[in-house]
Structures are given as structure tokens and as C-alpha cells.
Design a protein around this nucleic acid. Structure first.
Length: 338
DNA sequence: CTCCAGGGATGAT
DNA sequence: ATCATCCATGGA
């Protein structure tokens, strides 16, 4: 067992893990249990520090250290590096937030999401998870992710807790569509299997794509079965560190129309994309994540019974451009393709 | 461009 | 207990 503690100023672990960018972390008590790649661990935030527990690091170079003391030091340092990198503690968050556009929606989101960071997820794990996410709500995506891990990932024991790694593309490629349907994937089973086979067979080299420019990367991702512009942008943002990528789902689309195009009836999806690219610029991905999380968790909502789920139609804002009445259902516009 | 299948959790009745 | 709602992609 290895214990480490790192300083994490300007970071909110719970907001980061509960903002719809990653789906497998389980909160037990005050700590979050999960994996970073193959590494099982727990992370707990105490003020400006992260307390980290992990099983022995399975790193070859640790074995070269002569003494047990030296091995422990190396293991701890490695663990700290892995965690700091995963949670993007090096992102200049204050600068990023300071560069957000000055408008009521952004200001509200920025205040609400203090400490929320875009994390760096493994390419395949992120891609596969977002393929399963299409047409699903966050609770469903979590369920699918955990089922895939339990059935086909590797079990790892840490301090009496059991966590599971995400199954490799090779592992998923050898499953049948029925196997995957049994994990509640529905029609996404065919897409996940097909993409897993492309990745496992080397036709889609996710690691090599890291060096591609944004447009080329998006185009490669969109060629994969089950990946459209929204999923591609999620993978670019959450796995490829493309902080301009701006995924537009129904929540964000509603925020954009209400906040930036109030009472304007005909705004096409293409116009929305062009607006986001120009208006939010280099840190569009962060802006999107903040608007999304604020809309889902923080915006003033209709009175509702405890436990009732918030839906995009329930959004209201305390901003000068808020609507006095909800948009009627038949006024909603579906996002259309380019 | 428009229309619609698709699956399963969850809320409404 | 049923019935409606939420949703991204892909194909007609």
C-alpha cells in the first residue's frame, strides 16, 4: 500500500468527478474509489490537499531501487505524478476562467464551478464510454460503465475495496453483440464492438492521433461507428486535451439558445457551432463544461419533489436575458447535422 | 433539409 | 401497475 498527499489548490474533486466528463468513480464515505488507467486508488480531498491511497504500483523501475525506503519514495512520487496529471492540476485555471467571456451566463457558471477541472482520461476508455453515452442520461452511463468494468475489466483489490479497470479494446473486440447488449448497451452494442475491432486491429490508432490537428482528429473520430460530432468533441476534450472542443448536447443547446439567442426562433445547429467557436475561443471546452455543470446542478429550477430528476426543460436563470415562461415543447429544435 | 428507430432507467399517473 | 420522457447517431 502506498499513501501520498499532494497540494491541489483551485481544485474541487467532487465537482470534477460529478460534472459528466467521467463516470466510474464511486464515492464511499468522503473518498472516491476508482482507477486511473490500470492503477486502482482512492482519492479524498481535504481543503487544498488530496489524500491518495493505492495498492503497490506495478512499475518495473521501482524494483531497481535497492532499499525498501527508496522504493517507497519512488512509488509515492510516481503516484503523485499520475494523480496530478490525471486531474490536470497543471492547468492554469485562474487564467482560463479570467479569459471567459463577460456575460451573465458565464459569470454564474464560473462562480458555481470554482475548482472544476477538465481531466485527462485514457483515450480508449473515454472513447468507449462516450460511445455508450449516446441517448443516455448520466445515471445510465454510470451503470453501463460499471457493468462493463465488472464483467470484462480486471478486478483490483485496494485496502479491502474492489475496483475494476475498463476493459481493453482487444477484450471488447472478442465479445459478441449479445454480450454487450447484456450490459444494457442496447443498439450501442454494435457500435462499440465495431469500434473496438477497429482499434484492436490497428486500423484506428488512437495514440498516433494525438499529434493530429483538431479538424483532422475530429474527422478520424467521426469515422468510427457510433461517433458523431458531439461524442467526437467529448473525446477530444476529455482525452486529447483539446480545450477548444465544444460538445453540444441538449443541455448546452438549451443554455445557448436561452442565453445567447433569446427569442430568436431560427438558429441552426451550424450557427450555434460557429458562434461557440468564435465567442468562447481557445478555452471553449472549459466554458462548455462550466455552463453544462451549472445548468445541470446549479441553475434555479422549478419546484419539485425530492428525488425528482432535473430535465433540460426545467432550466431557469437569474440573468437579464432569462425567459419569463418556459419554451413550449413543440418549440424545441433538434440538433441537425452539417 | 426532415423524419424517425433505438433501449432502458426513471418520473408521472 | 402502465405510460411518457429523456437523448446522439445513422440511415431513409
Amino acid at each position: 500500500m502506498t499513501f501520498a498527499q499532494i497540494l491541489a489548490p483551485d481544485f474541487d474533486l467532487e465537482k470534477t468527478l460529478d460534472s459528466g466528463q467521467v463516470f466510474h468513480w464511486q464515492k464511499i464515505g468522503k473518498a472516491f474509489w476508482g482507477t486511473i488507467g490500470q492503477l486502482p486508488l482512492s482519492v479524498e480531498q481535504q481543503a487544498n490537499a488530496l489524500k491518495i491511497h493505492s495498492a503497490a504500483m506495478e512499475l518495473d523501475r521501482l524494483k531497481r531501487s535497492s532499499s525498501e525506503g527508496a522504493r517507497n519514495v519512488k512509488a509515492r512520487r510516481e503516484l503523485e505524478e499520475v494523480v496530478a496529471h490525471y486531474f490536470s492540476l497543471d492547468h492554469p485555471l485562474a487564467e482560463i476562467c479570467a479569459a471567459f467571456p463577460r456575460d451573465p451566463a458565464m459569470t454564474g457558471a464560473r462562480n458555481f464551478c470554482r475548482g472544476l477541472r477538465i481531466i485527462r482520461q485514457p483515450h480508449w476508455e473515454c472513447l468507449a464510454t462516450f460511445i455508450t453515452s449516446s441517448m443516455k442520461q448520466v445515471a445510465h452511463i454510470r451503470h453501463i460503465s460499471l457493468t462493463l468494468r465488472k464483467r470484462y475489466g480486471e478486478s483490483k483489490q485496494t485496502l479491502g475495496h474492489q475496483v475494476f479497470t475498463f476493459p481493453s479494446a482487444e477484450r471488447i473486440a472478442e465479445l459478441t453483440e449479445q454480450d454487450l447488449r447484456a450490459c444494457a448497451l442496447g443498439y450501442r452494442a454494435k457500435n462499440l464492438r465495431a469500434t473496438a475491432r477497429l482499434v484492436a486491429g490497428g486500423e484506428a490508432n488512437l495514440e498516433a492521433w494525438s499529434t493530429l490537428p483538431n479538424d483532422a482528429l475530429r474527422s478520424q473520430l467521426c469515422d468510427l461507428p457510433g461517433v458523431g460530432p458531439k461524442v467526437a468533441n467529448c473525446v477530444m476534450l476529455f482525452a486529447y486535451e483539446r480545450l477548444r472542443a465544444f460538445p453540444i448536447d441538449v443541455w448546452i443547446e438549451r443554455v445557448l439558445r436561452q442565453q445567447y439567442f433569446p427569442r430568436k426562433r431560427k438558429v441552426t445547429a451550424q450557427q450555434l457551432r460557429d458562434f461557440c467557436d468564435r465567442y468562447f475561443g481557445d478555452h471553449g471546452g472549459y466554458a462548455q463544461q462550466y455552463l453544462f455543470h451549472h445548468a445541470r446542478k446549479g441553475a434555479r429550477q422549478k419546484a419539485r419533489k425530492p428525488g425528482q430528476v432535473v430535465s433540460p426543460g426545467d432550466l431557469r436563470y437569474d440573468s437579464p436575458v432569462k425567459r419569463s415562461t418556459p419554451l413550449p415543447r413543440n418549440e424545441r429544435r433538434k440538433e441537425t447535422k452539417p
